[in-house]
Design a protein around this nucleic acid. Sequence first.
DNA 1: TCTGGGGTCCTAGGACCC
DNA 2: TCTGGGGTCCTAGGACCC
Length: 397
Amino acid sequence: VSSRELARYILHVDADAFFASVEQVLRPELRGVPVVVAGGDRGVVSAASYEARRFGVHSAMPTVQARKLCPRAVFLAPNFEAYRTFSQRMFAIMKEFSPVVEVTSVDEGYMDLTGTLRLHRASPWEVAHRILSRIRCELGINASGAVAGTKSQAKMATSLAKPNGLLYLEPHFAGKILGALPVDRIPGVGPRAAQVLESQGITTVEDLATASTGTIRRLLGRWGEVLVETASGIDPRPVVGSGKGDRKSYSRDRTLEKDTSDVCFVRHVVVELTEKLAARLRKDGKGATTVTVKVRYADFTDVSKSQSLQSCTNLTGDLTDCATALLKKAVIPRVAIRQVGVRFSGIDVPLLQTDLFDPTRPRRAARDRMVDEIRNRYGFDAISAGHENSSRTNPYR
DNA sequence: TCTGGGGTCCTAGGACCC
DNA sequence: TCTGGGGTCCTAGGACCC
């Protein structure tokens, strides 16, 4: 860090084994027991308690592999509502110490503690310690954290503090401590970049920090230059309060229980996903201008097709018509499909439903509202779109 | 026994416009 | 005969994050 820059004290907080920890709080009989939160049997592990990790289970591991490594673990389907509640409570505690809390995921966030000495008459690490203690006391889950001069240094240091630790990274030693870490611990270096770097003999953070920018640029493009800076401890990004940035897309994917080349079945899945997404748009008072349908084949190759509509819409009929047409374009006949996904982007305030050029819009909007109401009350399956595979019988038309 | 689901951001080529 | 260049939008694909 250049001495010219004003030194900052950035805190990064990250809950330990978050989903699994919440489950252990809600169900005390699971404390001390290996717990694995995972999707279906064709999915991967979302979180593994530290008891389960001792058996080699970790997140992103295929569920079947986790079952083999630790058959006596309790396997649970995720309960996102509970995680959201705990998440909000965790960030509420952080916000008591500073209004600017950057929420980067459900269990992770940043704070700038540079001003805390004046505000709380306590040093940044004292404040950090209080925050983690209160999370532990009031939520019953452990969180780890680190205070450092930049966001990426704090984040990397948190991984050293885990589990249930707090690390203060003295600026003078930051380079030495973080420099020894493998290069893929830098946020933004994933499997792909790590492989490219390793082929050049760059395996540690320090290797990347001292590499020639030109070389890295050639290997990784413009992003590479940022990574060299990050490795060198340069990261001017400020902590920004969340909530201001509107979401840019809505998406849903579904991995099918079995691979199939039955296009009719897949189309029903796409329609269902599209209807659910459209309802979310309406709930938020938003519309979408672009629809993307993605097909993942059994061999894990992805094909995506997208189309921009003439106007921003949240009418189910418009969106399902578009999605089914895109599916048709994405499907390779007789090739087994593993997963389908629908994504809405170009999110904006929808066009007024009284469209001069389409007199059916108000009627269709009213129908959508009615369907939303019934489904909110009685569940998604309470009302069905019927034979939506024919546009003539599409009830949304 | 394989490999989720929800997001963000970037790149690159072609169309189109001025 | 030579044949701009910048900006923006659209589409497809890919890397990365938790």
